[in-house]
């Protein structure tokens, strides 16, 4: 058995009286895409924020390569190789692709006592990395606001991969996207996985999960409902698990099986 890249054991997270997570355990292996499913408010975002250092767990352990770690800021998480692509916070639309790509890690060029942003290098790398993901930019200084939703997600993913992410967390990267764009993002996920990076993929959409997932974990009201490997579970079973079985079955019947 391989040691997981990251393993979270019995994570609890309380916000005052609100128990957002009541003991969740999830792990990711190298080159694996672990899908995290669950209804609104299940605690998925809270969980990955705990993983990336935005929140500190109330109790529970985080192990990386078998050693316990503790992140007190997203910066520390990043330095340990955990990169997160937040759904709506991924990119700043007013800024250029290059400025976004390098945000927080701008390459510097020195002359004398002054150091400046090395745009030449930054532009070249950005263009090359985007091309690897199958997106040909018009120019690296075009604003991210002029890109499509899928392209923006791809810039964020390319950025994470370039900066040596070991674990890539994607929070609902496909929820606002059309069919083509979703397919592009899913194929990007596939490329990234093949390079040995572990992926946590959050989605509401069972079909998107089935398309790329190697393992599936369903959260409900802050608890793990179950984990299944690819091939052990059918899309319908996964859907039922997510929505809490019984109720959904009857709802679905009344909607004529269209959900």
């Amino acid at each position: 058995m391989t040691t997981p890249l990251i393993e979270l054991v019995d994570i609890e997270k309380h916000f005052g009286a609100v128990i957002a997570l009541a003991g969740v355990s999830v792990s990711v292996n190298p080159g694996e895409c672990h899908c995290l499913l669950g209804d609104n408010g299940a605690g998925k975002s809270t969980f990955i924020k705990t993983m990336s250092g935005v929140h500190q767990p109330t109790s529970g352990k985080i192990l990386m390569d078998g050693k316990e770690v503790r992140f007190s800021s997203p910066r520390q998480g990043m330095e340990a190789g955990i990169a997160t692509v937040y759904q709506d916070l991924a990119m700043i639309p007013l800024m250029s692709v290059t400025r976004n790509f390098w945000m927080g890690r701008e390459p510097q060029k020195k002359f004398g006592p002054f150091s400046s942003f090395d745009f030449k290098k930054a532009n070249e790398v950005t263009m090359a990395e985007m091309a690897k993901m199958g997106i040909n930019l018009r120019e690296p200084d075009q604003a991210v606001g002029t890109l499509s939703g899928g392209e923006r997600q791809t810039v964020a993913i390319a950025r994470a991969v370039y900066f040596g992410a070991k674990v890539l967390i994607l929070d609902e990267p496909t929820s606002a996207l059309g069919v083509r764009q979703t397919a592009n993002v899913l194929s990007t996920v596939d490329k990234v996985r093949k390079s040995g990076i572990g992926i946590i993929f959050i989605t509401h959409n069972v079909r998107h999960a089935m398309a790329v997932g190697d393992r599936f974990t369903v959260l409900n009201r802050g608890k793990t409902l179950g984990t299944a490997l690819r091939g052990e579970i059918t899309p319908d079973e996964l859907q039922d698990l997510m929505a809490g079985g019984q109720e959904m079955a009857s709802l679905e019947a009344s909607l004529g099986g269209t959900v």
Partner: peptide, 18 residues
């Protein structure tokens, strides 16, 4: 770049370590 980022979206900037 940090000035632009802080004003463009301070949360997004914070999350990447600005």
């Amino acid at each position: 770049n940090w000035i632009f980022a802080a004003g463009g979206d301070s949360q997004a900037a914070l999350y990447v370590g600005v």
